[in-house]
């Protein structure tokens, strides 16, 4: 077991070292990751200069949702960003190289492109979360602290599961990049805003089928101490880890099915 972990550490270290070889490009990437996060934030602040509420939520409440979602997205992007590469790997034949090594293919995919600059987004998310929570005066009860800790982690796993499913689509589609990229950045958008801004059909899809609402919306409701205007039960705020577990199980199934499809077992 220790030996097995050591293998992954060697791979991770090599990926990190390869980036630090290009220092300028690394710092530029870090800057751009932070900036893109910043512009989204500015957009929300500008929006609230014009309106008082978005879907019935005021500025600080929307920012709480946004900060939780950004942190989860940032963590997921840091650890699972290379899921995006799967369509390319399949098209160029690199996937065959992963298949010929005595290691888990998913593990190799996840470690194939660890990009440190992606940490920029997670860091900005955490800073934003700290600021918003302080500014809005969320009471620092033990319960709230626990919720603040588990929500981004569970959220990252939920988003990761969605990404895994979407990138697995490239086992069936010749050009999977579009699907993957739109899902990747689509989830970021969907998890960042209150559910009330979306129309009913969209809400159903993004709370029941793709559990985006569990990433930030429900936990944020509990933090700002508001009931869901749409009537979701209060325990939804704490359902993140369970939802993450179920999503990951489903995603793992789809992945395995995709590999079977790729190999052509029984098709």
């Amino acid at each position: 077991m220790a030996e097995r972990i050591a293998v992954w550490l060697v791979i991770l270290r090599s990926r990190i070292r390869s980036q630090t070889q290009y220092r300028t490009s690394f710092s530029l990437n870090l800057l751009s990751a932070g900036l893109s996060q910043g512009t989204e934030l500015v957009a929300i602040v500008c929006l609230f200069a014009q309106v008082d509420a978005l879907g019935g939520f005021d500025r600080s409440e929307v920012l709480t949702i946004y900060a939780l979602s950004s942190t989860a997205f940032g963590i997921c992007e840091f650890f699972g960003g290379s899921l995006n590469m799967l369509p390319t790997y399949i098209r160029t034949g690199t996937f065959d190289i992963l298949m010929m090594r005595p290691l888990s293919v998913l593990g190799q995919l996840l470690t194939s492109e660890v990009q440190l600059h992606r940490a920029g987004r997670a860091v900005v998310g955490v800073l934003m979360l700290g600021y918003v929570v302080g500014a809005t005066g969320v009471p620092m009860t033990g319960q709230n602290i626990l919720l603040l800790l588990i929500t981004p982690l569970a959220g990252a796993l939920v988003i990761g599961a969605v990404w895994l499913v979407s990138s697995s689509m490239s086992f069936w589609l010749i050009k999977g990049e579009e699907v993957t990229v739109s899902v990747t950045y689509g989830t970021n958008l969907l998890t960042s805003y209150p559910m009330t801004v979306f129309s009913a059909p969209v809400r159903v899809v993004f709370s029941c089928i793709v559990p985006a609402a569990f990433v930030a919306y429900y936990p944020a409701l509990a933090l700002v101490d508001r009931p869901d205007p749409l009537g979701a039960p209060e325990y939804f705020a704490w359902s993140g880890p369970v939802v993450a577990g179920v999503s990951l199980a489903v995603a793992a199934g789809v992945w395995r099915w995709g590999i079977h499809q790729y190999k052509g077992v029984g098709s």
Partner: peptide, 20 residues
Amino acid sequence: RSQLWWDLPLRESLEILRAI
């Protein structure tokens, strides 16, 4: 196609394979 890591020196690619 290559099984080496394009952005690393050859020796390091081989070291990773040693671990794998």
